[in-house]
Simulated scan of single mutants.
Amino acid sequence: MAMDRFVRALIQWQAGSRPEPARTLPVAHLRERYATQVGRLRGKSAQDPDIETKDHLIDGGDGTFRVRTYQPPADRGRLVTYLHGGGWVTGSVDTHDPVCRRIACELGAVVVSVDYRRPPEHPHPGPLRDGIAASEWADRAFPGRPHVIAGDSAGGALAMGIAMHHRDHGGIGFAGQLMVYPPADPELRSESARKYGTGYLEEVDDLRWYYDQYVPDPAHRSDPAIDLLSADHRGLPPTVIGTAEFDPLHDEGVELALRLAAQGVEVHHVPAPGLVHGYLLMADIIPAATEAVRNVLAAVEQMLTPVPTAR
């Protein structure tokens, strides 16, 4: 499918501004730029749903970090722990606030958004440990609810790492997991990484730099929570994977869905034709992105809705 015309215009606008590659910027400057870019998108979007939010500090074992809870107007008794994207290095509960509001409203779920501590100050396994602690806090704070572990981009990879941890340690039995355009291969060997690695908003050389910040020792990149394609997927919860057509990570997401299914996991793969990495943050300003987000959340809804049994 051809690239969405609004996305093409966004890419052309960005190219015209000649932004410096993420890998060349000081981390503080990069985080500020990311937050500003997301804020501009949000400023053009529809009004965010008016729902109750509250920030909490929780103990990560070696310090505290923040989570933000979202209480939906129509609570259907569900729970989502959400890990934001941004290459592990950038992103926050603030940048992904509109995403979590949408999830809360459309799924009727309490959402716990995790402001995990980020590299390079807190490399792997720090963000993963924060995510595990946050998911346990959420399960205690909102007991008895079907619990979905979710995230986009780097947060999607963290979500799967958290699911594997709980599977291996007799922890939370998640009702499902949601990963939207997750990084799954730290070597970035796919055809889409080559084909869409330059000129499609997310640069493959920046992705390599993000891995360098998150897992500075290449010897540790074989960890199953990093190399998701080589992980043991048996016993993981039902999974929704969203991919974007013009994304360096597209093929990794497709391959991950196939490998999960081959190991007996129920998988719903939701493609987003014509779109690029980061489309969750483009909802309400790009119609195709709005539709793609709806499709992803509809797949989660289907995953959580029991199938009636014949009498």
Rank of each mutant, 00 (worst) to 15 (best):
D205S: 09
D247H: 10
H268F: 13
L228I: 04
S222L: 01
E203R: 03
R234A: 14
P287C: 06
P248G: 06
L207N: 03
L280A: 12
Y210E: 02
A289F: 11
Y279L: 12
G235Y: 04
V270Q: 14
D223N: 13
T243F: 05
H269I: 14
Y210P: 00
L280C: 14
D217W: 01
H233V: 03
V215T: 08
G274V: 14
P218H: 03
H250L: 09
V267G: 04
A244R: 06
S230L: 03
H268K: 14
L304Q: 11
A257E: 06
T290C: 09
R259F: 10
M282T: 07
Q302H: 12
R234F: 00
I226S: 02
D223S: 03
P273D: 15
D227M: 01
A231W: 02
T243M: 08
N295K: 14
D251N: 08
Q302R: 15
G253C: 05
L297E: 07
G274F: 13
V240M: 05
D217T: 01
S222V: 11
M282A: 15
V204S: 06
R234C: 07
A262Y: 06
P287R: 15
V265H: 08
P287S: 14
D232L: 02
V276M: 07
H220R: 13
L207C: 07
E255C: 05
T239Q: 05
E203Q: 07
N295F: 04
Q263N: 10
P273C: 13
L229F: 05
A244W: 09
G278F: 11
D251C: 06
V296L: 14
I241V: 15
T290Y: 10
I285M: 14
R294A: 15
Q263W: 10
P237L: 08
A288M: 10
A272R: 11
Y211V: 00
G278T: 09
G242R: 01
Q263P: 08
D206Q: 01
V265S: 07
V270T: 13
D232E: 11
P224V: 04
S222C: 06
A272W: 11
T239D: 05
T305W: 03
G242Q: 09
P237M: 07
W209T: 01
G253K: 02
H233I: 03
A298H: 13
G264A: 12
A292K: 09
T290G: 14
Y279G: 06
G235A: 04
I241A: 05
R234D: 01
V240N: 08
V270G: 06
D227H: 13
A289D: 10
A272V: 13
Y214V: 01
Q213A: 04
A231S: 10
L280W: 15
A292L: 11
L249R: 09
P271W: 13
T305H: 05
L304M: 04
E245V: 07
H268G: 08
T239C: 12
G274A: 14
G278C: 11
I286K: 11
V267F: 07
E301Y: 05
A272G: 10
